[in-house]
Write a protein that binds this DNA or RNA. Structure first.
Length: 869
RNA sequence: GCGGACGUGGCGAAAUGGUAGACGCAAGGGACUUAAAAUCCCUCGGCCGAAAGGCUGUGCGGGUUCAAGUCCCGCCGUCCGCACCA
């Protein structure tokens, strides 16, 4: 074997082909081995992979290769989240068809991913825009509809009048469309909804079973579902003159204990009673308009002043005939939550207090510290919010006086229930999932609108409803709506001329079940139930935190819906979830303030220069790689220059996987040097021919061998453990240690054959340990060392526990907790002897001068602490 | 405002309550070389000391413990999520 530098070019492609030809990573749907399903969130085919992909897929790949070595039947698939707006934008801007744009991007990105050397079963690949895939999606949606999980209802949407489309809330910036800049209108549209809110409780409570998810993500989902337990009750209304009205006002509250502190009622500007009042009041009408303008804007405006307008009606206090509460339409009451109406208790709610101060309404404290005098309580500009309810009780509250908050709630709930005006009610913030999009590049919603039969689902035999390809984007809006030939179909029920639904699905639907499809990607059913019950759930799911709520929640809902329709027998899709950090990079700006790409920068220790202009540039902090700041490194360039192994190694080194990793040139070069170092060491070992003759070992060799074996087996023990727990940075540190140990061992001259054998064993283990991270280099080394077959097929090495323990242990000797000496003893040494020896150690004697020993703590085989004073 | 996470050398970071800084990067010194690259060796939290060794040190202030980066209480700071949810 030559001692040339390792050149990944050619070598990496060679091994990739070898793996493909050997079918090394094909997953079998039946096996005696235990199964392991590792999945990284599949990419959107934007055209090129970015460093975030490299990090994500490297992590998954390490797990896949490691689990395979550990004897698992591993499923590690790849696909494409291929529907979505960018394809349409490309069509509009560059006159390319969304379909060809998407599939060309997929082809390019597939090549890029393959150049990373990923252990993926490519035979399972699919794109969500494949009619075969989305046809199953259509079929399931029809089934969901029949199972009562789907609803068509009219709802308010953000409508962009220029682009002729619905916008998500995130796409509305300061009341304007993010793309067109046009003022967004509120519009009522009939849309399809998945009734995810029906599953609020289950989706919430099952979070407790997801113990292998980050607590942060579970918390975010909990907050998103937003359970609150309270009371819903109705007020009797009257007019100015005290005449009882027909209407009642129903409100929702979690603080019914404070009912005696109520001084007004506030209802949403969109509430039915506001609408009614608006019919006879221009002022109310104007107020409604004002609120509508605020509705979609930024948080700054949303935090605007509390405002309201009296409606001239009054709510009778349920427990005090003497009191009536003025009813206001108010800008801070949401129509979409609870009843869209509340009673205001200014003393104990900051919003209500702001409102009351503005309009001169009563502020009545009703919850007070037990030792306070109720008569002298005064509320300033801050509402009283007691966190510790054990120190307070009810005051100014009639029959509730003196009760605890909890007892008061119970009493109020009971009295209201008895009076038939209220009941306990649990509310959730989680809304139903609106899935209609007025878009072309998405899965057509499989329904037909017939004038006589209404909404009719497309017969299963006619699925998939395939997107027509002869469309154009000359005009704004959804091209499907203008495609009369495609739109016009006979009604499946009555045969009369009818129209297809032209909306397509939210792309979050596509990604809500792809993981199940991977189990049987060619099945004529959405999923093959046997295959799915074999592989699911995903054992390890890896992706960005940005999907903590929507994608993961929708997927959790979807598997439940699929279970209801008999496709899956599964509670949760993802057993263990890992959210990886971002890849960040410094930013560079020229003197004139323009962003400059890193490729164009010469970086010194403390300064950076633009290699094109020769100017010094300003170095900005490391931020997420983004096109706008141009701080992007192209994975292709890195792989071309250093090879995939170097890029992979860098991605895993140093920084824990959940944190943001800073990409630096120095770091990549360091990884590159390490690749070369391994290659040199392995070359050295491979070149050392071991003769058959056995020599007598000299002492130095014996120690060397013992040291090396210990290092090897310690590395084997910890690397596997670290990878299992996704502590890649620690696994890598352990590999470094082993390399250092091997290098130290190789530096001795005239090694005996035994030593050479030990070095060879160490090198072989080393190669196996880093093989999941740097698979190409590992194969090349494996072959150089004469290993059997492919290292990717080799079983993970076992460590020999007996080599890890030595018969001597080093004790730390402390005096009052401060280290004073180190002493070696035989393992399991007698306590008294240890204590005695320590007390006679010269450092200890010196430090104890003038002190008397009070106590000696001995931690066996570890530490002695002498307490003296 | 509510909720959560985090705070350790010049930097990325390690550390089942038991030797703080493993491992890597950067830096400095040296060897090899005509030279450079590559490689190898040494130093590397701060202060004192020739050394042995000592003092000090994990955001700040307290506490528990024989022993605290780690556990508890209170601050300060940074980051993230939600944000009029009644």
């Amino acid at each position: 074997m030559s001692t040339e530098r390792y050149n990944p070019r050619g070598v990496e492609a060679k091994w990739q082909k070898t793996w493909t030809d050997a079918g090394s990573f094909l997953a079998s749907n039946s096996s005696d081995k235990p199964k392991y399903y590792v999945l990284e969130m599949f990419p959107y085919p934007s055209g090129r992979i970015h460093m975030g992909h490299v990090r994500n897929y490297t992590m998954g790949d390490v797990i896949a290769r490691f689990r395979k070595a550990c004897g698992y039947n591993v499923l590690h698939p790849m696909g494409w989240d291929a529907f979505g707006m960018p394809a349409e934008n490309a069509a509009i801007e560059r006159k390319v068809h969304p379909k060809s744009w998407t599939y060309e991007n997929i082809a390019a990105m597939r090549d890029q991913l393959k150049s990373m050397g990923l252990a993926i079963d490519w035979t399972r690949e699919f794109a969500t825009c494949d009619p075969e895939y989305y046809g199953h999606e259509q079929r399931m949606f029809i089934e969901f509809h029949k199972a009562g999980l789907v609803e068509r209802k009219v709802s308010m949407v953000n409508w962009d009048p220029v682009d002729q489309t619905v916008l998500a809330n995130e796409q509305v910036i300061d009341g304007r469309g993010w793309r067109s800049g046009a003022e967004v209108e509120k519009r009522e549209l009939a849309q399809w909804f998945l009734k995810i809110s029906d599953m609020s409780e289950e989706l919430l409570s099952a979070l407790d079973t997801l113990t292998d998810w980050p607590e942060k993500v579970r918390l975010m989902q909990r907050n998103w579902i937003g359970k609150s337990e309270g009371l819903r009750f109705s007020f009797v209304l009257e007019d100015e003159a005290g005449n009882q009205l027909d209407d009642k006002l129903t409100v929702y509250t979690t603080r019914h204990d404070t009912i005696f502190g109520a001084s007004f009622c506030a209802i949403s500007a969109d509430h039915g009673l506001t609408q009614k009042a608006a019919q006879s009041s221009d002022a109310v009408k104007a107020f409604q308009k004002e609120c509508a303008a605020l509705g979609t804007s930024e948080e700054a405006i949303e935090r605007a002043e509390k405002k309201g307008i009296p409606l001239g009606i009054y709510a009778r206090h349920p427990f005090d005939a003497e009191r009536r509460l003025p009813v206001y339409a108010a800008n801070f009451v949401l129509i979409g939550y609870g009843e869209g109406a509340v009673f205001g208790c200014p003393a104990h709610d900051q919003r209500d207090l702001d409102f009351a101060r503005k309009y001169g309404l009563d502020v009545i404290p009703v919850v007070a510290p037990k030792d306070a005098d109720a008569a002298t309580l005064d509320v300033g500009s801050e509402a009283l919010l007691e966190k510790d309810t054990s120190t307070v009780h009810m005051v100014n509250s009639g029959f509730l006086d003196g009760m605890s908050v909890e007892d008061a709630k119970a009493e109020v709930a009971k009295r209201m229930a008895d009076a038939g005006i209220g009941e306990r009610k649990t509310n959730y913030r989680l809304r139903d999932w609106g899935v209609s999009r007025q878009r072309y590049w998405g899965c057509p919603i499989p329904f037909i609108h017939c004038d006589t039969c209404g909404v009719v689902d497309v017969p299963v035999a006619d699925l998939p409803v395939v997107l027509p390809e002869d469309i154009n984007f000359d005009k704004p809006g959804n091209p499907l709506e203008r495609h009369d030939e495609w739109k016009s179909v006979p009604c499946p029920k009555c045969g009369a001329p009818a129209q297809r639904e032209t909306d397509t699905f939210d792309t979050f639907i596509d990604s809500s079940w792809y993981f199940a499809r991977f189990c049987s990607p060619h099945s004529d059913q959405p999923v093959d139930t046997d295959a799915a019950s074999y592989w699911m759930p995903v054992d390890q799911y890896i992706g960005g935190i940005e999907h903590a709520i929507l994608h993961l929640l929708y997927s959790r809902f979807f598997v439940r819906a699929m279970r209801k329709c008999g496709h899956l027998d599964l509670d949760e899709p993802f057993k263990s979830l890992f959210t990886q950090g971002m890849v960040i990079h410094e930013t560079y700006r020229s003197q004139s303030g323009d962003w400059i790409v890193p490729a164009q920068i010469a970086r010194d220790v403390d300064k950076a220069t633009d290699t094109v202009s020769g100017e010094a540039v300003t170095i900005g902090p490391a931020e997420k790689m983004s096109k706008s700041k141009k701080n992007v490194i192209d994975p292709d360039d890195i792989i071309e220059q250093y090879g995939a192994d170097t890029a992979r190694w860098f991605m895993l080194s140093d920084t824990p996987p959940e944190r943001d990793i800073e990409w630096t040139e120095a770091g990549v070069v360091g990884a590159w040097r390490f690749v070369q170092r391994i290659w040199r060491l392995v070359g050295q070992v491979a070149d050392d021919n071991v003769s058959i003759v056995t020599e007598v070992l000299h002492k130095a060799d014996a120690d060397n061998i013992a040291e090396l074996r210990k290092s090897t087996h310690m590395a084997i023990a910890s690397v596997g453990d670290d990878i299992t727990n996704l502590r890649f940075n620690r696994a890598i540190a352990r590999v470094y240690e082993l390399v250092n140990a091997l290098a130290a061992s190789l530096s001795s001259d005239d090694a005996s054959d035994e030593l050479k054998m030990a070095q060879r064993e160490a090198a072989v283990s080393l190669v196996q340990l880093f093989a999941p991270m740097m698979p190409h280099l590992a194969e090349e080394c494996w072959r150089a060392l004469g290993g059997d077959g492919l290292v990717c097929d080799a079983p993970w090495p076992n460590h020999d526990e007996s080599l890890l323990v030595s018969d001597k242990v080093t004790f730390v000797v402390q005096i009052n907790g401060k280290k004073r000496a180190e002493l070696q003893f035989a393992k399991g040494a007698d306590r008294e002897m240890v204590e005695d020896t320590c007390l006679r150690h010269e450092n200890v004697v010196r430090s104890l001068d003038g002190l008397s020993v009070r106590k000696v703590i001995v931690v066996p085989d570890k530490l002695v602490n002498i307490v003296a004073g």
